[in-house]
Each structure stands twice: as C-alpha cells, then as structure tokens.
Amino acid sequence: MKNVFRMLLALLLPILLVGCSGEEDTIYVDFSKRKEVLLPVQKDAITYAYLPQYSHAVSYGRHHLLIEYLGRATGMTFRQVFPDTFDEHVKMVQRGEIDISFSNPMIYVRLARSGARAFARVIEPSGRPSFRGQVICRDDNRFIRTLDDCRGARWIAVDHSSAGGYLFPLGMFVENGITQDDFRRIDFAPGPGGKQEKVVLAVYAGAYDIGSIREGTLDILKDKIDISQIRVVKSTRSYPGWVYAARRNMPKEQVARIAEAMFALDLNSPDGAVILNAAGIRGIIPASDGDYAPVRKLMSDLGLDAPGAGGLPQ
C-alpha cells in the first residue's frame, strides 16, 4: 500500500510543482487615463409627516394624493415620512427631520415651544374647522349609560398626547368631577401607529369597559367590525382642528407656496374632491398660532402647560 502511495505521489508532484510555479502575464494599468463616475444625487425633498394616530398604511392612503398634488402645484419635491409614535414625531420636527407636520392641536402646542408655527388647519368632515373626542363602550354594556357611570371603569386611551383620544375626554371628565383616581385603570394603546383603531378593537373585544377616540374613527373601522356594537357615551366640546405647522427656520417662501396650494383645493372640483375625500377632510384654511388658545387653556387646566411637558403627570 505504501508503494502505491509513493507511486501516485511521484506522478502528481511534477504536476503540482508546475501549477505552482507558473506565472501569469502582467497586466499594465495606465492610471493617467481615468474617468470619474458620479453617483446620482437625490434631490432635496420637503418632508411631510402625519401624526401616527392611525396605522402607517392608513396614513399613506389618506395623504399620498395630497403630497403628489403639492409637488405638482409647487414644483417642489415632497417625501412622506412615518414616525412610529407621537413623541418620535415631536422629536423629528425639533431636529429638523420633518419640515411640514400635520398633527393634533395638543402636539402642535408642544411643537410651537420649539419654534414651529401653524399656517393652516383643516375643515373636518363635519364641515367645521374643529373636532371632538368621544368616550365609547360596547352597546350591550348595561352598566355604562352616562359619563358618571364611567367611575370605576377600565379605560383605554390612545396616547398621553392624543387630543381627541385622551386629553379632550380627560378634560370633560375633570369638568364633571371625575378624576384619574376614579377609574380602576387607565391604559394606553400599545405599539407604533394605529392606536385609534386599537382602542376601538379593545373595547369591541370587551378587554376594556370604555375607550376614548377622536370623532371620525368609527367610520374608518366600519368595514372591519360591526360598529353598531359600539356606542358613544358622550362627546367632548369642540376644539380647534388638526393643524399644519412648519418647522423652525423653514424658508418662508416655501411655506407660502405650500399654503397657497393647500388653500386652492376645492371640494367642488373633481380633482380636489378626490384628494380631499381621500384625506378625510373638506378643505384646508389659514391658521395662526393664536387659534390654539383654547387648547393651551385646557393643557393648563390639566397641568400640561409647563415648558417641555410631554404627557400628563402619572
């Protein structure tokens, strides 16, 4: 056996040595002849974000036609971005990562502390430039008929900073002598985005006795659940509606062009109707920081007016 191995090695060794000793032809590279390759540069875009009260899919579906229209009308490039949480939305505006913020009035007041300024607000499906919060329960809940019946209930709300989904209803409870301590528990919808839907689904499933949402949310879920099984216990008073704000130091001429395009949208024109109906609004009108004085008063009444306050003290 050893002799066979030696014979094979003797036959293969010359082949291996030849393979190892072979030299490849030298390739000459002339570095004096060069061509510079330029990578495509992405055009600067105006970033636009919808506060994530609904899922990212809903946010995109409601606003992508509006964003495409703004691009055509202004000649500028727009890009929709999708923060996962209310707090992330605020921080992105503060860092200059969101140019145009579409948010509830409570979040706007927080943004204004960092230099953002309102320039437009929407006309709600109700036909008013204002909206309300709603306290809901299952329709078959025989124990909750009035606001006072909510004492001792398990309450699920949208977010600490949600206007219609928490703070408007909380203000209504407080006005009626019902404090946070009067509830068995107060929880907030988990996870990123889609929190309004999660509140409705949690009440629908019986996991909570009551929930708080902004008006209009039930219509969004009418194809997913039997909304006749949900009853509105009471709606809050109206507050100034959702607002468009430009980040600090955004060029005024850009804001003016965007505002002009927004105000030109008309529900009575075919193209305008498609865009506005998709967004769930009836129009966009001018706004100023002073329009949100009632919201600041509510925040003060709830102890939320301290600079940098982001949520209700627990």
Results as ranks from 00 to 15, higher is better:
residue 20 C to Q: 08
residue 23 E to A: 14
residue 56 H to R: 04
residue 89 H to E: 12
residue 55 S to K: 01
residue 26 T to M: 05
residue 84 D to Q: 13
residue 7 M to D: 04
residue 78 F to W: 11
residue 56 H to L: 07
residue 106 M to V: 12
residue 19 G to M: 01
residue 96 G to Y: 05
residue 67 I to L: 12
residue 54 Y to P: 01
residue 27 I to R: 11
residue 96 G to M: 03
residue 94 Q to K: 15
residue 33 K to S: 09
residue 28 Y to A: 13
residue 82 F to A: 12
residue 100 I to F: 10
residue 111 L to D: 04
residue 73 A to G: 09
residue 69 Y to E: 04
residue 36 E to H: 11
residue 104 N to Q: 06
residue 13 L to P: 01
residue 104 N to F: 06
residue 101 S to F: 00
residue 69 Y to I: 07
residue 39 L to D: 10
residue 23 E to F: 12
residue 27 I to G: 03
residue 73 A to P: 14
residue 37 V to A: 06
residue 51 L to K: 02
residue 95 R to H: 08
residue 93 V to M: 07
residue 49 A to E: 05
residue 112 A to P: 00
residue 36 E to C: 04
residue 96 G to T: 00
residue 85 T to S: 11
residue 95 R to K: 08
residue 7 M to S: 09
residue 57 A to I: 08
residue 111 L to K: 06
residue 27 I to C: 08
residue 64 H to Y: 09
residue 93 V to Y: 04
residue 98 I to W: 08
residue 30 D to G: 04
residue 83 P to G: 12
residue 50 Y to K: 02
residue 95 R to G: 00
residue 113 R to I: 02
residue 7 M to N: 12
residue 25 D to R: 09
residue 21 S to A: 14
residue 28 Y to R: 15
residue 84 D to S: 15
residue 61 G to N: 11
residue 67 I to P: 00
residue 91 K to H: 05
residue 98 I to G: 02
residue 68 E to C: 03
residue 37 V to P: 00
residue 11 L to P: 00
residue 46 I to W: 03
residue 78 F to M: 14
residue 53 Q to S: 08
residue 85 T to L: 02
residue 77 T to Q: 13
residue 111 L to Q: 11
residue 55 S to Q: 01
residue 108 Y to P: 02
residue 86 F to W: 06
residue 92 M to G: 04
residue 54 Y to C: 08
residue 41 V to M: 00
residue 111 L to N: 06
residue 101 S to N: 06
residue 111 L to E: 07
residue 77 T to R: 15
residue 13 L to V: 10
residue 13 L to H: 10
residue 60 Y to L: 13
residue 39 L to A: 15
residue 104 N to S: 13
residue 102 F to W: 14
residue 32 S to D: 15
residue 69 Y to F: 14
residue 7 M to F: 15
residue 75 G to P: 05
residue 67 I to Q: 13
residue 95 R to M: 03
residue 66 L to C: 09
residue 109 V to H: 04
residue 53 Q to C: 01
residue 91 K to M: 10
residue 75 G to Y: 05
residue 81 V to F: 07
residue 105 P to K: 11
residue 50 Y to D: 12
residue 18 V to Q: 12
residue 15 I to A: 13
residue 101 S to P: 03
residue 10 A to S: 13
residue 112 A to E: 10
residue 76 M to K: 13
residue 45 A to D: 09
residue 71 G to A: 08
residue 31 F to Q: 13
residue 55 S to C: 01
residue 21 S to N: 11
residue 81 V to R: 11
residue 83 P to I: 07
residue 90 V to F: 06
residue 104 N to P: 00
residue 51 L to N: 03
residue 98 I to K: 10
residue 20 C to D: 00
residue 56 H to G: 07
residue 65 L to F: 10
residue 80 Q to V: 08
residue 49 A to G: 02
residue 79 R to E: 12
residue 102 F to Y: 15
residue 75 G to R: 02
residue 59 S to V: 00
residue 23 E to I: 13
residue 87 D to M: 13
residue 23 E to R: 10
residue 72 R to Y: 05
residue 107 I to M: 10
residue 100 I to E: 01
residue 64 H to D: 08
residue 95 R to V: 00
residue 76 M to W: 01
residue 107 I to T: 11
residue 65 L to T: 09
residue 74 T to F: 04
residue 41 V to W: 05
residue 112 A to K: 04
residue 90 V to C: 03
